[in-house]
């Protein structure tokens, strides 16, 4: 899908948003320098994470840029989705016919039986996206093509799409007959899976119809025949032992630990004997120093990530072991080491 040509207002607004993100990053760096100057370091931070936040609030309360940094973050969080949706609306008359044409093709989308989405999903506006993932008919396009490619990709270190390709490559085999992407969303990880495993049948499940509709466009444009399902990753309804690889990319930090465990149990059930999981997500808090934990937690608090702390504090290795996986490995990926990969094997 070609990068959309935005109208002037939308393009300039997205550029402006990127400028705010840049200024936020600079203010955050200045904030951490000020923290250090006022005696807050990884070594002096309290053990309790909430107390770390309280300490920073207290010590920086008279430093004007502290409030301004929070204000910029708040504004960016609340407005990034709205701004991209408005940019889309300026060009929608031209774009929608192209998108509709991509609804048809070899990829299928099963909308399920209309089950009610679980509250851990329906009651959260992930990343503070106004109205949630399904807020508008083309939210999958807005987030998949505009938010991620024009804002997130610029704000995050490294190439966020190369990271997805790297995660896909961490699967130990290349001969899986069938692969399931849990939390497939708009297909940003499903696509590198399909490219890495061109002979495998690619399946994807997600709770958001709007996001999966965009994944369908991504696949159809390339002539790929994915099987997409609207449903819960923890209760797929798919036959046991039907996949060689079950995988996910940055799904876990969006869901509470009890659902993560249920998803790992479901993955185990879905795997054929000898199958693998590769689950990539945010770094584990227990692997980080106190300052890094505070930094992630601070960003999660402002960025609409209600489950981040609980998820990042979860012992994924122990949980996988309890479920029955073997050959369990966990590692972070270079260059930034800001992604944690859990790889494990179902006994043959």
């Amino acid at each position: 899908m070609d990068t959309p040509i935005l109208a002037q207002r939308g393009r300039a607004s997205v550029d402006f948003q990127a400028g705010i993100n840049k200024a936020s990053g600079m203010l955050h760096a200045a904030m951490e320098a000020e923290m250090a100057a006022r005696g807050i370091t990884a070594q002096t931070m309290p053990a309790d994470i909430d107390e770390r936040h309280a300490l920073v609030e207290e010590r920086l309360s008279d430093w004007p840029a502290f409030k301004v940094r929070q204000m910029l973050g708040e504004w960016a969080s609340k407005n990034h989705g709205v701004m991209c949706r408005q940019a889309f609306e300026e060009i929608q008359d031209e774009v929608i016919p192209q998108l509709k044409a991509l609804d048809e093709g070899p990829t299928t989308l099963d909308y399920g039986k209309g089950e009610q989405a679980p509250s851990y999903w329906s009651r959260v506006w992930f990343h503070r996206t106004t109205g949630g993932w399904d807020a508008s008919d083309y939210n999958g396009y807005v987030h998949g093509e505009l938010v991620h490619k024009m804002l997130v990709a610029k704000a995050y270190p490294g190439d966020i799409f190369a990271t997805r390709r790297l995660a896909a490559s961490k699967a130990p085999r290349r001969d899986y007959k069938r692969i399931l992407d849990m939390g497939a969303s708009s297909g940003h990880y499903t696509l590198p899976l399909a490219e890495t495993f061109p002979d495998s049948e690619i399946w994807g499940i997600d709770l958001s119809p709007r996001m999966l509709e965009h994944a369908r466009r991504v696949a159809n444009e390339r002539g790929m025949a994915w099987k997409l399902i609207v449903g819960q990753a923890e209760d797929t309804g798919l036959p046991a032992g039907s996949f060689g690889l079950v995988t996910s990319f940055i799904l876990f930090h969006e869901i509470p630990p009890r659902i993560i465990r249920a998803i790992l149990e479901e993955a185990y059930r879905l795997l054929e004997p000898g199958g693998d999981i590769v689950m990539t997500d945010v770094p584990r808090y227990h692997d980080l120093d106190a300052m890094s934990v505070w930094r992630y937690d601070w960003l999660a608090r402002w960025g609409g990530e209600p489950y981040w702390r609980a998820s990042a504090s979860m012992d994924l290795i122990g949980t996988a072991r309890e479920i029955g996986f073997e050959n369990i490995e966990a590692f972070t990926m270079p260059p930034a080491h800001n992604y944690y990969v859990l790889r494990a094997h179902k006994p043959a």
């Binding site: 550029d15 400028g19 840049k22 200024a23 203010l27 200045a30 320098a33 000020e34 840029a65 301004v68």
Partner: peptide, 24 residues
């Protein structure tokens, strides 16, 4: 040039708020 202009405008507003990141 646009990015430079953008950053200067943002910087001017942040400066009024005593928070110009280029001067902290």
């Amino acid at each position: 040039k646009l990015n430079d202009k953008r950053d200067k405008i943002i910087g001017a507003v942040l400066s009024a708020l005593k928070s110009d990141p280029s001067r902290l």
